[in-house]
Write a protein that binds this DNA or RNA. Structure first.
Length: 442
DNA sequence: GTGGGGGAG
DNA sequence: CGTTCTCCCCCAC
């Protein structure tokens, strides 16, 4: 199968995927070497496609979706994106959940899609493939908007789903947060319907919530002045204050006339201001928990369930939300690799110059095209395992590199680039192995 | 800001 | 494999 452009080394898309594949290989080897974790990576041009190909070759491999990404003729569906995504069941596409998938299936089937009769959960279903939707007469963003849209649905849901089905996704990669937006605890129950039971569970959940808030939102104060007379007790400070506390329940859905219980995940909730006493670090935790239950959670519960009895709850959830972050003195911690890509221009410049003189200046990519695999718009790279130690610096190279434990580095230092002693080329650390192989091949 | 819908892992 | 427990984002009001 033709899986790459005729002159891959000059195709910008190919080069970008090549670079990303080497980066992935580097990150995976470092992760395993430094932390002992294997990982699986998918490489493509957006989050959707990367995630989909990333599901292949688990638990310790990586997969790159190769060009061509667009059809060269009006033929359509000869590009690898369409070839790859078309065989997925619509519900497997990230961003298309159960509800949207059911509507898509119903449209294609021209009848309500069955949802695994007999069993409780609407899990297994009838298979409607992406291809089936794409080929449906008249289908497009507008039709999808009509099918999927409605009150409560996001704007442009039709266009969004249409894009997903075509492998397009322009949502940005978000920066990792050091603080969650919400902390919640919940428990499910066979049946809960007395105030005594509810109070007991609320106490459990409130206690857990307090512990979680301490774990996730409390930081050791580092610059406390040592006063020998005062053994600092409260050497902790809040990284964030949740401004809102929310109580949610899930009443058991009423049983059908025929006795069957149809699954509902519908939750109802009430929320209110988080009382300030929960942030008091001098108060004993169990006192705070008591006050939280009696002064906050039980009133919320009575708002939620004014009836005196018989709620038959199957779930209770308490959440601390609406985080007000305390001024963070430290920026993200080693979670921003954008600097690496800001340097990419400089780095690639070196290659480009040589590129015009010599086509082979792009380090070779080890693609094992498994000839016996009939379904490869995707090619696994380095499928077997690490390439020995060649992707790590040799001892002589290591002198020039800062290779200490940088997993939690502050992200302030510039990305390490490496300068080859033989040819003076400069490139990112993760490309060392490939560059060495290139020299060795002569 | 509150309450609910839909989704991911 | 299905269920449970979190966590996220969006929207209407």
């Amino acid at each position: 199968m033709q899986v790459a452009a005729e002159t891959p080394s000059k195709d910008p898309l190919y080069i970008r995927l090549l670079l990303a594949s080497h980066l992935a290989q580097y990150l995976r080897t470092q992760l395993e070497k430094e932390k002992g974790y294997t990982a699986t990576v998918g490489i493509s041009t957006n989050k959707l496609l990367s995630k989909l190909v990333g599901n292949l070759h688990k638990p310790d491999g990586q997969t790159t979706l190769l060009p061509p990404y667009i059809s060269t003729h009006d033929d359509d569906s000869q590009d690898n994106v369409t070839l790859f995504i078309s065989s997925y069941e619509v519900g497997l596409i990230p961003g298309i959940g159960f509800k949207i998938a059911q509507k898509l299936r119903a449209h294609v089937l021209q009848r309500p899609a069955e949802i695994n009769t007999g069993l409780v959960y609407g899990g297994t279903k009838e298979n409607v493939l992406v291809r089936d939707v794409l080929e449906y007469p008249g289908i497009g963003p507008d039709v999808l908007e009509r099918i999927l849209g409605g009150p409560g649905t996001p704007r442009g849901i039709g266009a969004r789903v249409w894009s997903l089905l075509n492998g397009c996704d322009d949502t940005p990669v978000g920066e990792a947060r050091d603080i969650p937006r919400q902390i919640s605890l919940e428990d499910s129950y066979i049946r809960l319907d007395t105030i005594e039971q509810v109070t007991k569970e609320l106490r459990m959940l409130a206690n857990s919530l307090l512990l979680r808030m301490h774990l996730d939102l409390l930081e050791d104060e580092e610059d406390v002045k040592h006063d020998p007379t005062d053994p600092q007790i409260h050497t902790k400070r809040w990284l964030a204050h949740p401004r809102t506390i929310r109580l949610s329940t899930r009443p058991r859905p009423p049983q059908n006339p025929d006795g069957s219980r149809n699954r509902s995940f519908a939750r109802i909730s009430k929320s209110g201001p988080m009382p300030t006493f929960v942030f008091n670090l001098k108060e004993p935790v169990d006192v705070i928990v008591d006050r939280l239950v009696t002064e906050t959670l039980l009133p919320l519960f009575r708002k939620l369930h004014p009836e005196r009895n018989g709620w038959n709850l199957s779930l209770v959830n308490v959440a601390a939300t609406n985080m007000a972050e305390a001024a963070s003195e430290k920026g993200g911690i080693g979670r921003d690799i954008s600097k690496m890509f800001r340097n990419q221009d400089d780095t690639l410049k070196q290659w480009r110059v040589q590129d015009e003189e010599d086509d082979t200046s792009i380090p070779p990519l080890d693609i094992s095209e498994q000839a016996d695999d009939p379904s490869p718009p995707v090619a696994p790279q380095f499928p077997d395992q690490r390439m020995g130690s060649e992707d790590i610096p040799t001892s002589s190279q290591q002198e020039d590199l800062v290779m200490e434990d940088r997993w939690e580095s502050d992200g302030e230092s510039d990305v390490d680039t490496y300068r080859c002693e033989r040819c003076d080329a400069v490139f990112p650390v993760f490309a060392i192995g490939a560059h060495e192989r290139w020299h060795l091949q002569g």
